[in-house]
Write a protein that binds this DNA or RNA. Structure first.
Length: 600
RNA sequence: GGCCCGGUGGUGUAGUGGCCUAACAUAUCUCCCUGUCACGGAGAAGACCGAGGGUUCGAAUCCCUUCCGGGUCGCCA
C-alpha cells in the first residue's frame, strides 16, 4: 500500500505519528519557501506542509505541484500552531509535516474545477465524467446511493428475502415501453429484448416457491428522456407470495422510513404514511402522485355557484362537468403578467381558460367583503354572495387569489393539479428536508387508449382486479379498480406495485379485454399462463425506483447527479461515444443490414 | 415529433446593431513572499464569439439553416 492513513480521518489524536498519505492535490498555497498542500482522497482533505528547512528535497519538489496531481507523502502529524487551526475541515486541528514526496502522476489543468461546486456545462460533465466524479458533491451522492442500497439489502435480508438475479437478455413483450433490442447471431432475424423490468420473471419465481424475492435490477426503456428518466435505471424489484396488499405496504413503510432515518437523518419523515385512494388524490390534488408537503387542495365550488349567471360556469355544470378551485395565499396582488402566465399554463394543460378572483386586502374578513375588493375579469357576473361562497369553500381570505377552472371533470383536476404545484413552487412550500411519503391505492385497472381505440393496463396486465369489480371487466371496464398501490414522495413516484393474478382463467380474461386474440395471448404470454396451471400461489410485489429516491434524498433535481455514468437527453454517452456504428463484419454476424434513414 | 432555453479565452460569466482592437473572475505561465487554507502581490499569454449562409455601410448582437447540451409536451404498461 502507498498509504496507511486516510486524509480526512486525521485528528488531534494522531499527532506525533508518522503517516503515509496518498491522494490528489486539491489546492496548493505557495508562500515562497513554505508550501501548503491540501491533499484529497475519498475520505476528505488533510493539509500537508513542506518546509525547506526540515525537508529541503521534498520542498523543492513541492514547488512544481499543481491541482489534480497524484502524490504520496510521508510525514509527521503535528498539531497546528495556535491560531492557525482551520475549523472548516474535520482535520483542521492538525497538519502533516512532509518528510518525503513522491509524484505518482502529473495532471493537465482539468477541464473544470474539481475542488469547488461551480457550474459546469452538462456536456463537459458527461464528456469528462471520470474527472467530474472526483467532485465532493457527486461523491457524496454516490455514497448516499450506496447506503440506500445497503439498507435495502440489510432490511430485506433480515426479513427472509432472497436476492436472485434474472436475465438481461429476454423476450420482447407487447404493452409498455419500447424495448431495447439485441440481435441474435444464431437465429437470423430474431432478437432478444432488454427487460423493462423483471416482472414476469419474478412472478415465475413465486410459482417456483421462493416466496420472498428481491433484486437490485437494471431496467431498460427506449423512450424519450426527462430530468427524472434515463434509458437505463435501477429498481428495487420485489415479490412475495401468500400476501395481500396490506402485507406489502406494511413491509415497505418501515423500509423507507429506515432508509431515510439511517442515511439522511436530517430529513423529516411523517409517520405513519398517509393513504389516499387514486380518486381522492385526483379530486384533492389533481395528481396520482401528489406533493403532500403543502395543502392548497382542490375544492368543488358547485354549491357556491349553482345559481350563477356566469355563463362559463353554468355551461360546465349543465354539461356534467365541474367547477373547482384552489387558493393562492397572499397572491391577490399578482400582476396582469403573472395572471396571464397562470392562464397560459392552464390552457397548455387543456383548459379553455382560467378564472382568477383576487380578494384585495381592503376587507378584514371574507364576510365583510364587498365587490370593490374583488378583482376579476368575471367580477361583474358574480354576486358578492357567490364570491363569498367560493372564498369560504376554498378557505381563502382577503389578500388571497382564487384560481378556478370549469369544464370536464378530469381536465379540471389535471389543470388545477398543475396550478397547485406551480403555486406551491412560487410560494416555496416544498421543503426539501421533508420527505412526505404517502400510499396511493385503488388505481383503475384499465385506461382507454383513444388513439388505438382499445383498453390499456393502467399498471400492467398482470395486476389483480379488485374482487368486487371483476364482474364489470367486460361490461364496464372503466369501473374496475385494481389491487395496485403506489408510494409517492414529494410529488414523485417512489414505487408502483400490485397484487398479481395467479389463475390462468382470470389472466386470459384480462388479455381478452386488452384486445388480444387467444393465439396472440398464447404466443406472447404462454409461458406465464402455463406456469399458472402448475400451482401458482397468490402473490404481489413492487418495483421501486432507486435513482429517484437517491435523487430526492441528495437534494438533486436531476438523475444524472446520482448516476456514475448517465446518458444525455438524446440517450447518448458522451464519454464512450455510444451508440456507435459497428463494422460490416459485426453486422453480418448478427444478420443485420442497416438502411439509412430517409432524407428529409 | 412539437414548443422553449442555452452555446463568447481552459472554466464560469458580462456584453443583445457602431463605444468590442470583446470585459470580469478564476485557471495557466513568469517573478516575489515562512503560517496560509478560495493565501497574497507584480506581470504575461490566452477567445474573432458552436458551424454555415444571409440582412446591413457595419453583426458576438438581427434573420435562416444546421450541430451540440438542457427543460418540457407527446411518449414512458
Amino acid at each position: 500500500m502507498f498509504k496507511d492513513t486516510n486524509c480526512g480521518e486525521l485528528r488531534k489524536e494522531h499527532a506525533g505519528r508518522e503517516v503515509r498519505l496518498a491522494g490528489w492535490v486539491n489546492r496548493r498555497r505557495d508562500h515562497g519557501s513554505l508550501i501548503f498542500i491540501d491533499l484529497r482522497d475519498r475520505s476528505g482533505i488533510a493539509q500537508v506542509v513542506f518546509n525547506p528547512q526540515t525537508a529541503p528535497q521534498a520542498a523543492k519538489m513541492a514547488e512544481n505541484l499543481r491541482g489534480e496531481w497524484v502524490v504520496g507523502v510521508r510525514g509527521n502529524v503535528v498539531e497546528r500552531p495556535a491560531g492557525t487551526e482551520n475549523s472548516k475541515i474535520p482535520s483542521g486541528d492538525i497538519e502533516v509535516q512532509a518528510v518525503e514526496l513522491e509524484v505518482f502522476n502529473e495532471s493537465k489543468p482539468p477541464p473544470f474545477y474539481v475542488n469547488d461546486d461551480s457550474e459546469v456545462d452538462e456536456a463537459l460533465r458527461l464528456r469528462y465524467r471520470p474527472i467530474y466524479l472526483r467532485r465532493q458533491r457527486i461523491q457524496n451522492n454516490l455514497v448516499l446511493r450506496h447506503k440506500i442500497i445497503q439498507q435495502m439489502r440489510r432490511y430485506l435480508d433480515t426479513r427472509g428475502f432472497l436476492e436472485i438475479e434474472t436475465p438481461i437478455l429476454g423476450k420482447s413483450t407487447p404493452e409498455g415501453a419500447r424495448d431495447y433490442l439485441v440481435p441474435s447471431r444464431l437465429y437470423p432475424g430474431s432478437f432478444y429484448a432488454l427487460p423493462q423490468s423483471p416482472q414476469q420473471m419474478k412472478q415465475l419465481l413465486m410459482v417456483s416457491g421462493y416466496e420472498k424475492y428481491y433484486q437490485i435490477a437494471r431496467c431498460f426503456r427506449d423512450e424519450d428522456l426527462r430530468a427524472d428518466r434515463q434509458p437505463e435505471f435501477t429498481q428495487l424489484d420485489l415479490e412475495m407470495s401468500f400476501v395481500e396488499q396490506e402485507d406489502i405496504l406494511a413491509l415497505m413503510e418501515p423500509l423507507y422510513t429506515s432508509i431515510v432515518e439511517e442515511v439522511t437523518p436530517s430529513k423529516h419523515v411523517t409517520k405513519p404514511f398517509p393513504r389516499l385512494t387514486y380518486k381522492e388524490a385526483m379530486e384533492k390534488y389533481g395528481s396520482d402522485k401528489p406533493d403532500l408537503r403543502f395543502g392548497l387542495e382542490l375544492t368543488d365550488l358547485e354549491p357556491a355557484v349553482r345559481g350563477t349567471q356566469f355563463q362559463v360556469f353554468r355551461q360546465a355544470l349543465t354539461e356534467k362537468g365541474v367547477v373547482k378551485g384552489i387558493t393562492a395565499p397572499g397572491c391577490a396582488g399578482y400582476s396582469r403578467k403573472q395572471l396571464d402566465d397562470l392562464t397560459q399554463m392552464a390552457k397548455d394543460k387543456g383548459a379553455r381558460g382560467l378564472i382568477t378572483i383576487a380578494l384585495e386586502p381592503g376587507a378584514s374578513t371574507v364576510d365583510s367583503l364587498s365587490m370593490e375588493h374583488v378583482r376579476s375579469v368575471a367580477a361583474r357576473y358574480f354576486t358578492i354572495d357567490e364570491v363569498k361562497g367560493m372564498a369560504h369553500a376554498v378557505g381563502a381570505k382577503p389578500s388571497d387569489l382564487l384560481l378556478i377552472v370549469a369544464g370536464a371533470h378530469q381536465m379540471v383536476n389535471t389543470v388545477l393539479g398543475a396550478l397547485r404545484l406551480e403555486i406551491g413552487k412560487r410560494l416555496h412550500l416544498q421543503d426539501k428536508d421533508h420527505m412526505k411519503f404517502a400510499f396511493v391505492t385503488d388505481f383503475p385497472l384499465l385506461e382507454w387508449n383513444a388513439e388505438e381505440k382499445r383498453w390499456n393496463s393502467a399498471h400492467h396486465p398482470f395486476t389483480m382486479p379488485h374482487p368486487e369489480d371483476i364482474q364489470y371487466l367486460e361490461s364496464d371496464p372503466a369501473r374496475v379498480r385494481a389491487w395496485s398501490y403506489d408510494l409517492v414522495c414529494n410529488g414523485i413516484e417512489m414505487f408502483s406495485g400490485s397484487i398479481r393474478i395467479h389463475r390462468r382463467e382470470l389472466q386470459e380474461r384480462i388479455f381478452q379485454v386488452l384486445g388480444y386474440t387467444p393465439d396472440e395471448t398464447k404466443e406472447k404470454f404462454g409461458h406465464l399462463l402455463e406456469a399458472f396451471e402448475y400451482g401458482a400461489p397468490p402473490h404481489g410485489g413492487i418495483g421501486a425506483g432507486i435513482d429517484r429516491l437517491a435523487m430526492i434524498m441528495a437534494d438533486e433535481d436531476n438523475l444524472r447527479e446520482v448516476i456514475a455514468f448517465p446518458k444525455t437527453q438524446s440517450a447518448t454517452d458522451l464519454l464512450f461515444g455510444a451508440p456507435a456504428p459497428v463494422g460490416q463484419q459485426q453486422l453480418q454476424q448478427v444478420h443485420i443490414k442497416v438502411s439509412p434513414p430517409e432524407q428529409k
